[in-house]
């Protein structure tokens, strides 16, 4: 490397611009934020066992999954939520936030929103994307849920991470109360075996190791799929379904399913659910999103099973 005796001509210029920017931004900052200890960080471990270093009191946050956005809206100061993904549509207030595509991930848009931490759920955001987000200097925190209790725990955890523990606990406590009520009502009586269909051709269903199994327990039913498969949403054959002989089918109204499912697989008209016409539609988002609305989803399932 060649050494220069003199300072390059652009150095004073750069120093000047830098100083000017510093003054400008610190002036803005002093007007806006009064939060103390803005530079305080702590290292926490997320649900996937990853070590994540994030601000103790993050002021700009966002989620990269619709369910996680719902979680944030329940716990965070909504003014601190800086964006949403193209699929985030609940609560309605989220629609005013700028959109970051999460598939394929729009990294540039994400950077432009300057989040101090982003939240993700297992399965929606791949580890590859997570690594890329981290490379951009944005910490990414994952939550994972195997049961309804895990979602409530997730809310308390968010309260802690967002420096709003009272809020997180209050939301989780009120959900727990409703959950206890629902569970007490459905304790008695037989539990119908429920098959929930996610895809019709080929037939894919909610497997044993999905949240639905736990939700059905609260709703007074049980998952008709008792075998644990490698995939959470396994593909099944007609014969397997005939063997299970589910008493309730979830996936669409009787008329819809008659047209789009049983006409494809007329052999399945032999199952109990069809003969007793116990075939129902439920709200898709309540079925698929592990969010604070999980209790609402359980209430809907319960209404259907009654």
């Amino acid at each position: 490397m060649k050494q220069t005796k003199f300072l390059p001509f652009w150095l004073p210029l750069r120093l000047f611009v830098g100083l000017w920017c510093f003054l400008l931004f610190s002036a803005c900052d002093s007007k806006k934020a009064v939060a103390p200890a803005t530079a305080a960080f702590h290292t926490v471990t997320d649900d996937l066992g990853r070590k994540v270093k994030l601000p103790v009191q993050p002021r700009r946050v966002m989620a990269l999954a619709p369910s996680m956005t719902e979680m944030l809206f329940a716990v965070a100061d909504t003014a601190t939520i800086v964006g949403r993904t193209q699929n985030c549509d609940f609560p309605k207030a989220v629609l005013t936030k700028p959109v970051v595509n999460n598939y394929p991930m729009d990294y540039e848009k994400l950077i432009s929103l300057k989040p101090e931490v982003v939240f993700a759920t297992e399965g929606i955001i791949s580890m590859e994307v997570a690594a890329q987000v981290e490379k951009l200097g944005i910490p990414i925190y994952f939550q994972a849920y195997d049961s309804v209790a895990d979602i409530l725990r997730g809310l308390r955890n968010l309260g802690f991470l967002l420096h709003r523990p009272e809020k997180g606990n209050a939301v989780a406590d009120s959900l727990q109360d409703r959950l206890n009520q629902l569970a007490a009502d459905s304790a008695a009586g037989t539990r119908p075996r429920v098959l929930a269909i996610t895809w019709k051709d080929p037939i894919y269903v909610f497997g044993r190791n999905t949240l639905l199994t736990d939700k059905l327990r609260f709703a007074g039913g049980q998952n008709a799929v008792t075998e644990v498969f490698a995939q959470p949403y396994p593909a099944l054959t007609r014969e397997y379904i005939l063997k299970m002989n589910p008493e309730v089918i979830i996936g669409g109204s009787f008329e819809q399913m008659e047209k789009t499912f049983f006409s494809l697989y007329p052999e399945l008209r032999r199952i109990k659910a069809y003969r007793q016409k116990r075939i129902f539609a439920v709200t898709d988002d309540l079925m698929s999103r592990p969010s604070p609305r999980v209790v609402e989803g359980i209430a809907e399932l319960k209404a259907v099973l009654r």
Binding site: T237, E239, L242, K243, E267, R270
Partner: peptide, 11 residues
């Protein structure tokens, strides 16, 4: 018979 049915109409 469910098994008979499966053999003849599915398998």
């Amino acid at each position: 018979n469910g098994t008979h049915y499966s053999i003849l109409h599915l398998r």
